[in-house]
Write a protein that binds this DNA or RNA. Structure first.
Lengths: 193, 193
DNA sequence: ATTTACACTAAGTATAAACTCAATGATTTG
DNA sequence: CAAATCATTGAGTTTATACTTAGTGTAAAT
């Protein structure tokens, strides 16, 4: 049984955590701890009761984000065995976290180096499922015989380019909502044998 | 005839300008005006005699960079009319400015908004030549009939993905030196009809 | 009921970086 | 040669932000 104090402490931490996610999603990683405290309705100092530094807060957030994405990718990749389905699923997952993900890739340089690994892990994780399916399609001569990692990098490169240039491509609405089908269609066209 | 004073002033400005380019190329856009002053061998205050703010310095640098790139692209695109030649030329040009260019695209979020346009201009400029040649190849059925802008974005997306992840792909030597031919080969394979 | 523990507060400190400005001394002007 | 000009200096000032800490009031322990 948890004491009243323990509960309050946990709740406050969760409140800060979730608020930070929202603030960073909206304003990017230049948002300040002061903003987060204000939005969470706690005093500035409270943040440092729960997280020893802003870097630790960032680290927790991003690693947790990576873990969540990994779970979603794992779950859905099992069920989708056509390339098209796989790509649709990939973009659907990213779509749910679009704002945070965009800030993550476009402001990577602001993020503590030891956490940037989390980003690499996200890609590796998806690459695993991606490669399994593409490999099979290459065997079947449905996909061009090009080194798999290049096919993967072309796909990630293309969608990251769009996400990184959301201001240009889709300033007023979610980018993936608008471009998912065009991106998938183009990519399938390119890789088909 | 220029007076001694005028000459000295100009030289100092150029010295600061070039040093800033080198410092930013090496350390990225978080490098400080103090670093630049020290490296240029002038006092910190001198920078603000020549540039009203660090943003103005950045603006000058990046716009000048864009102009140079535009010239190089214009010159060389005239002479290269096969796709392969065009892509090789593109990467050769970027190769000459690899470090600065990488910082430019990976730290875009640190750059004043009104200068980010310069980056868009660089792409538009290249897109013009790129599209002209691809269009012709599509007519000849040498390249798949896919919307040209998607072909262009796939190419830029791919090379930016590599440049943005230089740490991963080629931490110890220039990235384009190592990957140019693989990138070109893959891309040509993908778009050929 | 009293004492102790502790989550939280808010005012304060530390630091880093851009930017200012009065002083300096070399150059130009008359 | 004297006076005026001006590029440069470097020791400040300002500002923004992360982080600290002594204090407060409520919950828990005795």
């Amino acid at each position: 049984m948890k004491s009243k104090r323990q509960l309050q402490k946990e709740n406050t931490k969760i409140k800060i955590f979730k608020t930070a996610y929202n603030i960073y999603s909206e304003y990017g990683f230049t948002a300040t701890t002061a903003m987060i405290a204000k939005e969470a309705g706690v005093s500035h100092g409270t943040i440092f009761v729960h997280f020893s530094s802003v870097n630790e807060l960032l680290t927790c957030l991003i690693e947790s984000f990576g873990d969540n994405l990994a779970l979603e990718i794992h779950d859905l990749a099992e069920k989708n065995d056509s390339i098209k389905k796989l790509l649709e699923t990939h973009l659907n997952i990213l779509s749910k976290h679009e704002n945070f993900y965009i800030h993550l890739i476009s402001e990577k340089s602001l993020i503590p180096e030891d956490v940037q690994m989390a980003l690499v892990n996200i890609q590796s994780n998806f690459a695993f499922h991606f490669n399994r399916i593409i490999e099979r399609e290459i065997q079947r001569h449905a996909v061009k015989s090009i080194p798999i990692h290049m096919i993967f990098n072309t796909w990630i490169g293309l969608i990251h380019y769009y996400l990184l240039n959301k201001d240009l491509f889709s300033p007023d609405e979610p980018l993936l909502k608008r471009y998912s089908s065009e991106l998938i269609k183009t990519f399938l066209e390119l890789i088909k044998d």
